[in-house]
Every structure is written in structure tokens, then in C-alpha cells.
Design a protein around this nucleic acid. Structure first.
Length: 194
DNA sequence: AGTGAGATGGCCT
DNA sequence: GGCCATCTCACTA
């Protein structure tokens, strides 16, 4: 069943970890539906996180969706050619988010043609594969009619299977670069990098 | 296996 | 003007 909005009001690190194992769905403009199981996330901790777009309370047109309540999407363009998908967490006063970094193909890896596992093992790649663009910014993730939503299919993740490590590509963020806010399923072949 | 550069555009100072 | 929450390819070895 669809994950409800209040799930996203929780502590952002907890949301990032609890998202592991859940399934992301996207309905493209041509009505085709793509999905994948979330196997890697990163938490971005808002105004006190130098790696976060809202660090210091920065509020711009790009980061507008971050200041929505938890449960909305935040999609932005990076390096001029890749989109990154985030889930906004907490409240309007706490602009935090979870970056979706990798998906495991569903319904079943065995049915996926060879090499297709290379299409969703990175934040930019999974957006391209699912057809996620700026048009998917600021959508309610708890509402299937938005075309972008998350489902819990009762896939169980043992806490011991969750790997915690440093985030990728945030070396500019000083001491925050060493915060363990990247989470992934141990031994998953579908993550962006080990 | 590891390093480095280029693509490419919007954001931010 | 400089910098990116990236990816791919070319190069070393």
C-alpha cells in the first residue's frame, strides 16, 4: 500500500533508512509506469547541514519544494544534464530531504534483460530511466494520482543489513562530509558504489 | 583499479 | 565566474 504523508514527518535519518526496501513508482507522461525498489539513500539535514541546499536557511526558487511539508518530491538539475530525486521530510520549518541514490529493478531481477541493472545504480541514472524531470518537482508522494509515489509491499529489511557511511560528492561541505548519512542495503548488487 | 577530463546549464555570489 | 548531492569514456598500469 501507498506510504502515507506522516511517514515523512519523522527524523530525516530514520526516513532515509526506513525507505530502504520500499518501492518507488513513476507514471510517465505517456502513461507508462516504471518502478524500482529503493536500495540506497542519503539524508540531508537542512539548515545546519553544510551539504544541504537549505544550509543556513537559504531559500531560492530552486529550493522552494524543500520548504513544503514532508512527503513532497524535490527534483533539481545537476551538472547541467542530470536530475536528482529527493523526498522532502519533516515540517515546513525544517527543510530537510532524502536523496534517492539507487534502485533495484522490479518486479524481478531475473526478468530484467542483461545489463539493465546498470540503469538505476545512481541518482542521475535512475531519474533518466524512470523519466523523472523538473516536471516531477513538488509532487505529493502519498497520492498516486500525482504520478510519483512510494509503496510498502511488506518487504522486510533487517536493521543489521543497513550500511551507514559517508555521503558521496559533498567534499566541499567540510566536517559534514564525514557525517554517516548515506544508507544502503549490505551486499546489494544494485547500489551506486560499494 | 584508479585517475582525469569533458559534457552542459542553472544556481549563487 | 565558479561551482556543483553526476556519468561516461579515455587514459595509465
Amino acid at each position: 500500500m501507498v506510504v502515507k504523508q506522516d511517514f515523512y514527518f519523522q527524523n530525516t535519518s530514520d526516513v532515509a533508512q526506513q525507505l530502504l526496501g520500499k518501492v518507488l513508482y513513476h507514471r510517465k507522461p505517456n502513461e507508462e509506469i516504471c518502478c524500482g525498489r529503493i536500495v540506497e539513500t542519503e539524508a540531508y539535514l537542512g539548515v545546519e547541514d553544510p551539504a544541504c541546499h537549505t544550509f543556513g536557511g537559504r531559500r531560492t526558487e530552486r529550493t522552494r519544494a524543500m520548504y513544503l511539508p514532508g512527503g513532497y518530491s524535490y527534483v533539481y538539475l545537476i551538472y547541467g544534464m542530470h536530475y536528482c530525486l529527493n523526498f522532502v521530510t519533516r515540517s515546513e520549518q525544517e527543510p530537510e530531504a532524502v536523496l534517492i541514490r539507487a534502485l533495484e529493478p522490479v518486479p524481478h531481477p531475473e526478468e530484467i534483460p542483461a545489463k539493465n541493472h546498470l540503469y538505476t545504480n545512481g541518482p542521475g541514472k535512475l531519474c533518466r530511466h524512470l523519466g523523472i524531470t523538473r516536471a516531477d518537482n513538488a509532487l505529493p508522494l502519498w497520492d498516486k494520482t500525482s504520478g510519483l509515489w512510494v509503496e510498502d509491499d511488506h518487504f522486510k529489511v533487517k536493521p543489521a543489513r543497513i550500511c551507514k557511511t559517508t555521503r558521496i560528492g559533498v567534499d566541499y561541505a567540510g566536517e559534514a562530509a564525514s557525517w554517516p548519512q548515506r544508507f544502503y542495503l549490505r551486499d546489494s548488487p544494485w547500489i551506486s558504489r560499494p
